[in-house]
Design a protein around this nucleic acid. Sequence first.
DNA 1: AAACCGGGGTC
DNA 2: GACCCAGGTTT
Length: 391
Amino acid sequence: MCAGAVVMSAPTPTPQAHETHGASATVMSAPHPPPDPIAPALLSWREHSGRKDLPWQREPTPYRVWVSEIMLQQTQVAVVIPYFERFLARLPTVLDLAGIAEDELMALWSGLGYYARARHLHRAARQIRDQHGGIVPTQIESLLTLPGIGRSTAGAILSLALDQRHPILDGNVKRVLARVFGITGWPGQTAVSARLWTLAEQHTPETQVAAYNQGMMDLGATVCTRRAPACERCPLADRCVAHQTERQHELPTPRPRRPLPERRTLMLLIVDPAGEVLLQRRPGTGIWGGLWSLPELDPSADPSDWCLTRLGRLPRRVEMGLSRRHTFSHFQLMIDLAVVHLDAAATRAGDDPGLRWLGRQALADIGLPTPVKAILESHQQGLPQPSGDVQ
DNA sequence: AAACCGGGGTC
DNA sequence: GACCCAGGTTT
């Protein structure tokens, strides 16, 4: 099994003096225990309110904990349970997993989604068979070489199964720590993540590591939830920075909404002496699919050329209008505007089913993209009310 | 429709 | 190391 204390790059240079009993090899040292540890309150909360009879907790071997952790990364507990039971009935050991055909594995996984994670699990099992004699490694460095196992999952496996002292930092724990200690900034940022890992390390107790880590996850899942946390039931509320400052809802800081990509287009407001406007039908798919809109061209293109090509005549005058910005869910559209005056209605538009001249009233009756409507309104002091019945 | 998620991949 | 992605679900 897991013999001897395994001390590698621990922060303290002094060798571990305490040979602990059994499998609980001390791996991580805690040079600076926190002044106000959260473990006591958390552990006592877990005693009465934690989840303690989940299938993988009843016989928490590294293999079972590993499988459960991978499943739980993607799916909630209630859904995982039957999958987990079925998976372990069919593949009770890591060697069974290593030996199964990929197709059959996928069949077992089917319904859980995230098949890449199942393939990682499979590859890792084969690596364990080939390189570790079929025993799930019990040193964290070895676990970290396996596909699909990062620091948090490795810590979960070794702490929950063997009570080794490793921190975990899954989404639930991140939320609890960010709130209790008032850590601002998106946890995806390296610096923020580093602070959270440090806090996780510092507060991991020397004993009862499994109970502590499990308790942190339980707390995040059942009390310190993303929305509407139940602070009145939280064992850490009395010291929770977020609770005290009523910032639960803004911690942890959500991922910054990255600026939407910007696209640019040039719309042509082509008017004839009668005040009619030329519209162009948009392609059936994509933005504003099938709607009538203003003719569009690349901002670097020449509106006069366009008129000559599509309408058979050059405009009398072209002036640039005001550019405007329109925001979609997935990008921003900068709309440059060219106002084009034609000497006479270009009847050749009638040859082209994608083009159409419309007067003010007709424009008001047709469905137009919002920014197009705004452009038309700003250029003719408002469209008239739609004719006919309007609710 | 958008936020979320641990690990992996990329530059 | 910063950033982005895959590939699903939840709110």
